Amino acid sequence: MTAPPPEARAELAPDGRLRAVINLGNPILARRDSATGEVAGVSVDLARELARRLGVPAVLTVVQSAGESVDALASGAVDVGFFAIDPKRAATTAYSAPYVLIEGAYLVRQDSPLQANEEVDQPGRRVAVGARSAYDLYLTRELRQAQIDRAPTSPEVVDHFVAHQLDVAAGVKQQLQADAQRLPGLRLLPGRFMVIEQAMGMARGKAAGAAYLGSFVEDAKASGFVAAALKRHGISGATVAPPR
């Protein structure tokens, strides 16, 4: 990959640092080590690698939810972030192509009558989802009859679902699988209800920076960087997105 043009460096790191927001709400992308407190994951690796190529230090702002990531970018507190591609967010965010694809799934109780994803959108069904997550945005558009009940963050969805005796929990399949192992009497519905395209993003109106960011993501996929990061962090169930 060629060196970044000065214009791209100025737009991605305007104060001589790459300020990146890291969302812990999606465990496939980033996690905090409970013993050391260190944050690690695919998004952390990508942020640091982009900073290295720009020749600037990486400064990470760690948040707990997708909504906080969006707010951090919109306010100018950070220069880049890691987001699920969604048309609502595209109004203010310039996305790269996706770097990983993640499945969104539904979780129910063992004794639930629901057996398929298509059965969820029925009158009287209450679906728990993380507020302002990709799943929230998608289901807000797609569900016509079921009611959405929002948990504060995606990692809190299943506990919210249990505490409020809701009918369905929606979120990252791997997170739901872990919660089903943690709490008895729960099961996932077969398959998926959506595929989430996870991309890097920056504020709109910065053409040189956005072009370089897009090229960086394509190179990270083609070179095996993303695949190696997934393997290094023990992530299963997410796949490297195809080339643009």
Rank of each mutant, 00 (worst) to 15 (best):
R187K: 15
A58M: 05
D149M: 14
S34N: 06
K221V: 13
G224N: 12
A203G: 14
I148A: 06
T140C: 01
L183N: 06
G185V: 11
S133T: 13
R48G: 11
R9T: 11
T61L: 15
R109D: 08
L101I: 12
A72Y: 02
M1I: 12
T92G: 11
E11T: 03
G209F: 04
G104Y: 01
A128C: 04
L137R: 15
F225S: 08
H164C: 00
Y138G: 05
L24D: 01
V226R: 06
E119L: 13
T140N: 04
A77L: 08
V129Q: 05
M1W: 12
F193C: 11
P5C: 08
S75I: 00
R187S: 13
I235T: 06
I102R: 12
D149R: 08
P152Q: 07
D219E: 15
Q145L: 15
G76R: 10
R31F: 01
A163I: 03
S43F: 03
G67N: 12
S112A: 11
D159K: 09
T239P: 01
R32N: 06
A30H: 06
E7I: 02
A169C: 02
R53C: 00
G16Y: 12
D15V: 08
D121K: 10
G67V: 13
A203Q: 14
E197N: 14
